[in-house]
Design a protein around this nucleic acid. Structure first.
Lengths: 232, 232
DNA sequence: CGAGCCATTGACAGAGGTCAAGGCGTGTGG
DNA sequence: CCACACGCCTTGACCTCTGTCAATGGCTCG
């Protein structure tokens, strides 16, 4: 790794509090690699050789079974993925692919486990990261079991609206197919779900969505902080 | 806590490797409490004051939103629950109730966080526990998104069959309502799902289920180790 | 023996998936 | 520059999955 990169990595919160020596050991044999869009980084079932840390770009975590596939999460920097597989020294449970050009730091799993044992500050940061991820998954499972498709879309739009610069105007960053899989439905049904939201003030113009009646939309979606406060 | 209880708790794997002093500190102000069946232990949204460790009995974790409720997990000893809320010092994301008479160790959240910082062996055990729980949830989310109701039931039966003493003969431990909620469906649909499995050799006699044609059932269920290997 | 809870069943309705067709934008090669 | 192909999104028709509501019957427990 270039020394510029090392400095950059050093500063992200996962590593900033760890000891110098342990940090150097951790990055031994680590790669900081750039990938184009639509490259598969991880295949579920493979043994967890590296902890991946997304520094730039977008990565999709997805799962497959029996010729079906579903998007589990869309990851944006800075975050780790498949940390639990590394800690447990087991197979990855999710596959990963880039959705756009991305930079990923790949740290050998062995190094991570050693650093956890050697450096309490790093262990602490990893625990925080893992606990945070855990809560994201619990929220996703609750959403999947407690809401129907239209409600999931409505709440997704309301969450996106929280993070948008201009309130009421959302720019969808993922294509329809990916969004549908993330929300747990087919692209066809997603189209219809948008249709059903029209009378709640949701206007669709390609990847730009306008919310013109937040009261009605909130009334339909009934957002719940124990499901929707997802700081990912 | 009685000294008998302390000895018993000391031996469970979460605590066995930690230092004597840290163990004593951890259990300060801790309660080991027995509960009858059908008692609510935790309400989602409350702040996480205690780490709960199930020593005997059965506990159901469930989530609610908008007048709906769903069973998230059925916990059997020995295991922790709502660990992530304790580590993050945030609100519980799931409620908990006993399904049968149970004994639960309740450790003040503050003590857990202190012990994590003070005792690397304990921190290590907590990380393992958290990583294990994380993987259970990921599997549950994959199952929910990648399988329909009948397939979820079929795979549930196959998993139960793995842990039963007499192969092909399963004793269901939860009532139909709870099983249905765990599998993400209504009790009525669960009944019909059992009906659909009849021609795959699934015979229902109350809480006892016989699997008389494992080949056909496997062919329908298509179990997948990345979803079904759930050691909970 | 009756009240009440639970599981099942039937009839029906709505949610959501599948398949096929068509429109629209984009890129490419002639 | 245009024609065409291709991929993506949408729409319609249709069907399956799943939920709702009501009725029934078995079971437990007073």
């Amino acid at each position: 790794m270039r020394s510029d990169d090392v400095r950059e990595v050093r500063e992200i919160s996962l590593f900033s509090s760890m000891g110098e020596k342990h940090f150097d050991d951790l990055l031994k044999m680590a790669y900081l690699q750039g990938f184009p869009a639509h490259v598969q980084l991880i295949t579920e079932g493979d043994s967890a050789d590296f902890l991946h840390i997304l520094l730039d770009g977008t990565v999709e975590l997805f799962g497959s079974s029996n010729d079906r596939e579903t998007t589990m999460f869309i990851m944006r920097p800075v975050c780790t993925f498949n940390l639990s597989a590394v800690l447990e020294d087991e197979a990855y449970l999710m596959s990963a692919r880039t959705l756009e050009q991305s930079r990923v730091l790949m740290v050998p799993a062995e190094n991570v486990r050693n650093a956890m044992d050697a450096d309490p500050a790093f262990a602490h940061a990893m625990v925080k990261e893992l606990a945070k991820r855990y809560r994201v998954v619990i929220r996703a499972l609750k959403e999947q079991k407690l809401r129907n498709g239209v409600e999931r879309l409505a709440n997704y739009l309301l969450r996106a609206n929280e993070q948008t610069p201009e309130a009421g105007k959302i720019e969808l960053t993922e294509d329809r197919r990916t969004l549908a899989a993330l929300l747990g439905m087919t692209p066809e049904y997603l189209s219809r779900a948008f249709g059903k939201l029209r009378k709640y003030g949701v206007e669709v113009h390609g990847s730009e969505i306008c919310l013109t009646n937040l009261d009605d939309l909130n009334h339909l979606a009934k957002p719940n902080p124990l499901i929707d406060s997802r700081t990912m």
